[in-house]
Computed example of a mutant assay.
Amino acid sequence: MNEANATASGQPFMEVPATTLAARVHQFGGPECICVETVPTPAPGPGQVLVQVEAAGVGPWDGWIRSGNSALPQPLPLTLGSDLAGVVVAVGPEVATLKVGDAVFGVTNSNFTGAYAHYALAQASMIAIKPDALTAVQAASVPVIAVTAWQALFDKGHLKSGQTVLIHGGAGGVGAYAIQFAKNAGAQVITTASAKDQDYVRGLGADRVIDYKNEPFENTVKDIDLVVDLVGGDTQDKSFSVLKPGGFLVSAVSNPDQDAAARHGVTAFFFLVDVTSAALTEIAALVNAGKLTTRVGPVFDLDEVGQIHEILDGKQPRPEGKMIIKMR
C-alpha cells in the first residue's frame, strides 16, 4: 500500500486496493464451509472506518456464527471474525475520533463479523487507539474477552476497592483479565481453577485459588460481594449461597435463576458484551502502564482458517491462549 499526498481536508490518503482476501461462508455448517476468496474491498459508511487488518483474534463465537448457532441474525454470505488490530486507511462520514494512519484495535461491529480479511470495516465507536506496548498480534487478542471482563466487574457488578470478588474460571481468557482488573481496582480476588493453572492465576494477582475439582468452593468461602460466573451450570447455582445479601452474580454464560436470587437477597443476571471505544481506551491505558498482560496462543495464516475452526469445534486439541490470524 502506497501513501499518497495529503488530501485537501488535511487527512492523509492511503491507496486502497479494489479487492481483498477474506474468509467467508456462503452457507452455515462445519469448517469445510469456509472459503478464502477475493471480494471487493468495502468502503466505509457513516460512523465506520476501513482498517487494513494486521491481525484478527479468534473466539468461540466465530464457530457459533459459522455453524448457524449465533444468538444474532447473520445474513449470508458473511466474512467471519470480530477482534482485530490494524491501521485505519479510510474514514467514513460522521467519524471525528479517528484518522487515516491511526493504529487501532477493537471489534468490527455488533454482529461480530468481518475481521478475517486483509481489509475490514469497523464501527468507529467499537475501536480505539492500539496500546503502544502491544504488537498487533497481541492487541488482536484483547478486545472481546477483556471488555467482557471489564463490564462484568465494573459496569454490571459495581465492584469497588476493598470488596471481595469470586471469579469462576480464572484461567480462561475472560477470567484472566477479570483477575487482573479486579486486583488493579483494589479488590480481594478469589478464583476457581484446576490444579495445573494455580500458579498461572496467582501470577495474575489472585489472592486465593480454589481447586474446583477437589475443594467445593461453596463450603469454603462466604460473604462475597460479587461472583463473576464464566462457567454456568451447577457452579452458577451453588454461587448464590456464598454471596452476602445485596451482592451481585454476573454471568457471561447463561441466565441465572431469579427465584434463587430473590431467596438469597441478591441481584443476578446474564449479559452480552458491548464493546465500546471508552472501555477499550481504559484497557489500553492499563496495558501501557504495565498493569495488564495478554496471553497469545498459536498464530495462523489466513489460509489455515479451516484448521482453526476444527480446533473451535473440538476436533483438535484446544491450545492455551487466544488463537490469532496474522495477515501476511
Score class of each variant (00 low, 15 high):
residue 138 Q to I: 01
residue 166 L to F: 14
residue 182 A to G: 07
residue 159 L to V: 00
residue 168 H to N: 02
residue 196 K to A: 11
residue 157 G to Y: 12
residue 150 W to G: 03
residue 171 A to F: 12
residue 140 A to K: 11
residue 189 V to C: 00
residue 191 T to A: 14
residue 192 T to K: 06
residue 160 K to V: 09
residue 187 A to D: 10
residue 174 V to P: 08
residue 145 I to D: 12
residue 167 I to C: 15
residue 186 G to N: 10
residue 166 L to Q: 12
residue 151 Q to P: 12
residue 138 Q to N: 02
residue 171 A to I: 13
residue 179 I to F: 01
residue 183 K to T: 12
residue 142 V to C: 05
residue 191 T to V: 14
residue 181 F to C: 03
residue 138 Q to H: 05
residue 147 V to P: 03
residue 194 S to E: 05
residue 165 V to H: 02
residue 185 A to T: 08
residue 164 T to H: 05
residue 156 K to P: 08
residue 147 V to F: 04
residue 136 A to V: 03
residue 162 G to T: 14
residue 154 F to G: 00
residue 178 A to K: 07
residue 168 H to K: 01
residue 147 V to Y: 01
residue 188 Q to C: 04
residue 155 D to T: 15
residue 160 K to R: 15
residue 174 V to E: 07
residue 157 G to W: 14
residue 189 V to G: 00
residue 166 L to Y: 10
residue 174 V to N: 07
residue 191 T to P: 11
residue 148 T to M: 10
residue 179 I to Q: 02
residue 176 A to R: 13
residue 175 G to S: 11
residue 163 Q to G: 10
residue 134 L to I: 01
residue 134 L to M: 05
residue 146 A to Q: 05
residue 144 V to C: 11
residue 143 P to A: 09
residue 182 A to F: 06
residue 191 T to Q: 13
residue 169 G to R: 05
residue 145 I to Y: 09
residue 169 G to P: 04
residue 159 L to S: 00
residue 163 Q to E: 15
residue 176 A to D: 08
residue 140 A to S: 15
residue 137 V to T: 09
residue 149 A to V: 13
residue 193 A to G: 08
residue 157 G to C: 11
residue 175 G to C: 13
residue 150 W to Q: 04
residue 165 V to F: 01
residue 144 V to F: 10
residue 139 A to N: 01
residue 173 G to N: 13
residue 192 T to L: 05
residue 161 S to Q: 01
residue 150 W to D: 03
residue 166 L to D: 11
residue 170 G to R: 02
residue 151 Q to G: 14
residue 184 N to D: 14
residue 158 H to S: 08
residue 172 G to W: 12
residue 180 Q to N: 09
residue 176 A to Y: 09
residue 138 Q to T: 01
residue 154 F to Y: 01
residue 137 V to I: 14
residue 188 Q to P: 00
residue 189 V to Y: 00
residue 164 T to C: 03
residue 151 Q to S: 13
residue 144 V to W: 06
residue 193 A to V: 12
residue 145 I to E: 12
residue 160 K to L: 15
residue 162 G to A: 14
residue 191 T to M: 11
residue 152 A to D: 06
residue 143 P to V: 03
residue 147 V to W: 02
residue 153 L to S: 00
residue 168 H to Q: 09
residue 139 A to G: 02
residue 161 S to P: 00
residue 175 G to M: 13
residue 176 A to H: 15
residue 145 I to F: 10
residue 163 Q to I: 08
residue 155 D to Q: 15
residue 165 V to D: 03
residue 190 I to D: 01
residue 189 V to I: 00
residue 176 A to P: 06
residue 195 A to N: 06
